[in-house]
Amino acid sequence: MLLFVEQLVNGCALGSLYALFAVGFGLVFATLGILNAAHGTYASWAAIAALAAVQHLGAPFPLAVAAGVVAGGLLALLVDQIAFQPLRGRGGPAKEGGMLGALITSIAFWIMLDSLAGFATGQQSLNFPADSYPARMLHLGALPLPSMQLVTIAAMLLATAGIHALVRHSRFGAAMRAVGWNGAAAALGGVNPRVVIVVTAFLAGATSGLAGVLGGISTQNVSFTLGEGLMLKGFAAVVVGGYDDVRGAAIAGVALGILEVMSAQYLSTSLRDGITYALLLGFLLLRPRGLFGRAAFLRA
């Protein structure tokens, strides 16, 4: 029983990383209509930036996290302005032309940023010094609770709640949804789509960056492989959770983390990924709008 609870906590912490990643990925997909292959590299670069802040500036943990988050956001903004902005309002049929071109330019950035991240870490997998983050093991009775896991879960809950509140319950969020439906109509309604794009790109990069820093610390792996690992699972969370509601992506991310840990513990590791992706396919076919998806869907 204790083992089950321990693994449940492990699964929640792991899933929180997937969730954070999925929230940002889904946000860009829903609002900007971009399938962003470079989204994982933001996580790797955020972790590298946070590590640099610790090593060169001696930044304490909260500042290092902040440095990583801001770096992730700025990088996403940079990529958006160089790779996506020139394509907006150009290219073939609106529904696919923009998405296709942006997919390719995001692949271009994925290749470049991964390669540069390899150079930045000297092709090594680096880690955060043991005294630079909360490493204490707390105990709840017999249950060991690593403080980093608690920090990760808390960060995920805060970020998800914050973004959900912004998207659903603020004027700005209404503008974001308007851009998601139809950029031209949003502009007519007095919303500046440019501002929405910039803020969305930054937020997405920042959440991916948060996942990268926390993941880099808890898995002791700061390298370009960090983002790629998150990408494959975070993507699954977006599909299961649905991209038009951040709560869905968050819940799906956590659920995938728990499922992954439990299937390795009680079934088999080699089937673990198979179970994840089978579930993914099942969701796609049976509930193709995700957990919180709306049945009605307008075709742009």
Partner: peptide, 18 residues
């Protein structure tokens, strides 16, 4: 093919992973 365009792209990506 029942899926909307964006979902179709994601679903096919999932198929590759599977």
């Amino acid at each position: 093919l029942r899926l909307d365009g964006h979902w179709m792209a994601l679903a096919s990506l999932a198929l590759v992973l599977m």
